[in-house]
């Protein structure tokens, strides 16, 4: 891990760390790199990936139009909204 990559990850994830948090994050990446070394030492060449720990099936409901919540209800939880929309700063300059 490098500081440049760390900053790129922060940017990708839309948040910032303070300088002291960045220093700590570098330590954590170093710690996990050591932990991952042990993981890599285990032979899994002939082992298939196991994405789900239990059998999974696709779940479908009837193809019937429903409106479980009203527009007003969905807008109610927003930090800022008008009568019919969420309000965000202007996107197109």
């Amino acid at each position: 891990m490098t500081v440049e990559i760390l900053k790129a990850l922060e940017s990708l994830n839309e948040f910032r760390l303070t300088d002291s948090e960045e220093q700590k994050a570098m330590e954590v990446f170093g710690f996990m790199e050591n932990e991952a070394e042990e993981l890599r030492s285990i032979d899994t060449e002939n082992v298939d990936v196991m994405v789900h720990c239990m059998p999974m099936t696709n779940v479908f409901r009837e193809d019937v139009r429903e409106q479980p919540f009203t527009r007003e209800q969905l807008l109610e939880g927003a930090p800022e909204h008008s009568e019919d929309s969420w309000i965000v700063p202007r996107l197109v300059k």
Binding site: M1, L6, E10, N13, F15, E21, K24, A25, F29
Partner: peptide, 18 residues
């Protein structure tokens, strides 16, 4: 997101995206 999340949550996100 910077103000809303603590360091441990952010650290998991960073490590997860890595």
């Amino acid at each position: 997101r910077t103000e809303g999340m603590g360091f441990t949550a952010k650290m998991n996100v960073l490590y997860g995206s890595d």
